[in-house]
């Protein structure tokens, strides 16, 4: 059985590294993108099973990325989990309405990521 793939989209290299370690420990194959534009390019080539998505990024932010992704053919397939310092409920509501499946507030740990992904039925 091939392992599931997760695309980590964050402009912080440190966060990408932390997320990668958590996801690889869970058995995911991990790819990285530094903003929404890179993430769109990645998704045009191959759709991941899960996308862990930062909100505030240069070039294209998370909100715009998820709206564009969901408008693509097959763009509904990946589970999109926002992962942002934004913790106001209106912001979280906006992210979910834009097409995100789940939302993680930073700072997070492996337990939170594992719990959210398990609830979405995408444990690796």
């Amino acid at each position: 059985m091939t392992s599931k793939t997760c695309l980590v989209v964050d402009d912080s290299r440190v966060i990408r590294k932390v997320s990668r370690r958590i996801l690889e420990e869970m058995g995911f194959e991990v790819a990285e993108a530094a903003d929404g534009v890179e993430a769109m390019a990645w998704c045009a080539a191959v759709l991941p099973d899960v996308i862990l998505l930062d909100w505030r990024m240069p070039n294209m932010d998370g909100l715009e990325f998820v709206r564009r992704l969901r408008a693509e053919p097959n763009g509904a397939a990946p589970k999109v989990v926002f992962c942002s310092v934004e913790s106001d409920l209106d912001a979280i509501r906006e992210a979910l309405d834009a097409g995100a499946d789940e939302y993680i507030m930073k700072p997070f740990d492996g337990g939170i990521v594992a719990g959210k992904l398990a609830a979405l039925g995408v444990a690796a």
């Binding site: 913790s87 409920l89 979280i92 719990g115 959210k116």
Partner: peptide, 15 residues
């Protein structure tokens, strides 16, 4: 963030 889906968080809680 322990076990609570984000949709229930925004529906049932106030900050």
């Amino acid at each position: 963030q322990r076990g609570l889906p984000a949709r229930l968080l925004v529906r049932c809680f106030e900050k």
